[in-house]
Nucleic acid binder design. Structure first.
Lengths: 175, 175
DNA sequence: TTGCCTCCTCCAGTAGCTAGAGGATCAAGC
DNA sequence: GCTTGATCCTCTAGCTACTGGAGGAGGCAA
């Protein structure tokens, strides 16, 4: 049977050598048989398996999911419900990431679109970060809520400090 | 001046306590002054600064970018070109991430849409991962190229092994 | 005083690799 | 046979941006 080295496998599957060792370490790839001089040897099946892993990673499947997918791939007789629910989950995760990123893009787009007039103290980007809630369509009680909470906490502290002294030690006094 | 504890600051800015210490550690927040019993004390400015950081993080700015943004925010007299190019870069990064995710979604969508007929050995998800290039519109010489490379490397190894013996030691022989 | 809460520092862990140190082995050319 | 450069080995640490826990000290109300 034709065997190849780890470097050749890396080239064949377009994956870095340390990544292959890493996959072996975390159990995605089985421990490779070794030569007498302790070098890993692989074959065609290894290329296929590593390719499988790489494609799954490209699709964003987390390692734990890939473990299950590999297991299912090794046992094609089993029902494939698990594979389908993993794919569905992954699809849902990708969908929600896209939505999040699109609302980010809207905010960033507005920031950038307002333009920079070069006037001192008038940077829209900084201004936006200073004041605006970043995006809270999805987070009830989000940024604005945080601002309110902030003010409430500070006011509270102010009230308390009138009654009992806080005795702060700041950077001025010695060290 | 009203001062608050780290816990109160955390609540005010809706950030976890260890995160605040972490931000201090990496220099996003200045070292907080301490009480006599070594507890950190904060004020309204801290709430604003932490809010600034939080909003920037929500927009996906990396920490290094936030460092620059904070610096610009501290010196409003400076030109804000840097802030704008950071925002533009971030917008571009978000855009490209969205594009990548959308092509992923297409592949995953096809996987899921073909449905599972429950027949053994016929799982479309596994099949797709086994064979199909995941998505290589953006990567010239991507998955298909890798398959070809794989075959070439294996063929090469086969040829070589005919000439010089490879003497592999596999799991069977002792140990 | 008791008990609970918050705070402190330090360390380890998360995901998925990637890079480097320091050393062994291999293949090719002379 | 010897040298040279490529490749391989293990082990460790680093990356991002936090998060959680251990073990101990301080603060506050009843």
């Amino acid at each position: 049977m034709a065997t190849i080295s780890i470097g050749a496998l890396a080239k064949a599957a377009d994956v870095k050598v340390p990544t292959i060792r890493f996959y072996e370490q975390i159990g995605l790839l089985p421990p490779a048989p070794r030569t007498e001089s302790d070098r890993r040897i692989y074959d065609e099946a290894s290329v296929r398996r590593l390719g499988f892993i790489k494609r799954a990673r490209q699709l964003g499947f987390p390692v734990d999911a890939i473990r299950i997918l590999l297991d299912l791939s090794d046992h094609p007789d089993r029902a494939c419900d698990d594979a389908f629910s993993l794919a569905r989950e992954q699809l849902a995760a990708v969908d929600s990431k896209i939505q999040q990123l699109e609302s980010l893009r809207a905010v960033l787009g507005r920031m950038v679109a307002t333009g920079c007039d070069g006037s001192p103290g008038g940077c829209r980007v900084i201004e936006a970060l200073d004041q605006a809630p970043a995006h809270d369509a999805s987070t009830p009680g989000g940024a604005q809520g945080a601002l309110d909470r902030g003010r409430a906490v500070i006011a509270d502290a102010r009230r308390r400090s009138k009654r009992s002294e806080a005795r702060p030690r700041n950077e001025d006094d010695g060290v």
